[in-house]
């Protein structure tokens, strides 16, 4: 990236906590011509917790990938912490936004938990002492202290999901983005995850089909269907609206 340009973007427009994430007229067309997002407008304040729900194929994952610059908009724009997401700023954005994928095995590729959690900080060019401190802090936060020398491959799914969370927490992002965080977890793993997410202070955005998770962790809910926002409001109202939920293939918790 171009540090000068990023510095410019920051000095011209200091990030506004009330508009920490700004998505304007976001359209995204896959190279094969499929239009996955058809004009999304969304503003999220710093520290807000937002659930994105909707049927399969609604564009939830595609949308989340824009927040981290894995996809760049075909039209419209995405700003995170005052930085417009472009090819030139993706590295900066990726330090600001931690993206946790649905399958932790896609994310964990090191022989030890420590090295996996250290990947982001090392890539950011931090000193070995700072890397160490961050890894310990991130593992403590997800309740996995003491697992540093273990191989991620040998942990349970719930533990691997926690380590995957730690691999982005160690980068100390201001926004956490989770794709289907509770998918595949057994009831106890799910309870633990809900308890863990409730302790987070960071901005939290998650796509999910798990309505109980939505009800317990996220005060705000956005329904995405066919590449558009179908509803956006307080979770308690949205989850109480049977007609709305049914119209988008969803059900009450």
């Amino acid at each position: 990236m171009n540090p000068a340009a990023a510095a410019d973007a920051r000095s011209v427009e200091p990030p506004d906590p009330a508009r920490w994430i700004e998505v304007e007229h976001l359209h995204f067309v896959y190279p094969n011509g499929y239009e996955a997002l058809k004009g999304i407008d969304l503003v999220i304040a710093r520290g807000e917790k937002v659930a994105i729900i909707g049927p399969n194929g609604a564009g939830k994952s595609t949308f989340l990938l824009h927040l981290n610059g894995i996809h760049l908009p075909s039209h419209g724009r995405v700003r995170v912490a005052g930085i417009e997401v472009t090819r030139a700023t993706v590295k900066r954005v990726r330090a600001e936004v931690g993206l946790v994928f649905q399958d932790p095995d896609d994310q964990l590729f090191s022989p030890t938990v420590f090295e996996d959690v250290a990947f982001g900080p090392i890539h950011m060019g931090l000193s070995p002492e700072e890397v160490h401190r961050r890894v310990e802090a991130a593992l403590a936060k997800v309740g996995m202290s003491g697992f540093e020398r273990r191989a991620p491959f040998h942990l349970s799914l719930g533990q691997r999901k926690r380590v995957a969370l730690a691999t982005v927490l160690s980068m100390e992002p201001s926004v956490l983005v989770l794709d289907e965080p509770s998918a595949g977890l057994d009831p106890r793993g799910r309870r633990e995850l809900i308890g863990l997410l409730r302790t987070f202070d960071e901005t939290l955005i998650a796509s999910t089909h798990d309505m109980r998770l939505v009800a317990e962790v996220f005060p705000r809910t956005v329904i995405l269907d066919d590449g558009r926002i179908a509803a956006d409001g307080p979770t308690e109202f949205i989850l109480a609206d049977d007609v709305l939920l049914e119209a988008h293939g969803l059900e009450r918790p």
Binding site: I70, K91, V93, R94, F101, Q107, H123, M124, V168
Partner: peptide, 19 residues
């Protein structure tokens, strides 16, 4: 997907990065 997950964590706050 693994390469994408690696890219998603390849962030930088300016300065020397990339390891």
């Amino acid at each position: 997907r693994m390469l994408r997950a690696r890219a998603a964590r390849s962030g930088s706050r300016g300065g020397r990065s990339g390891g």
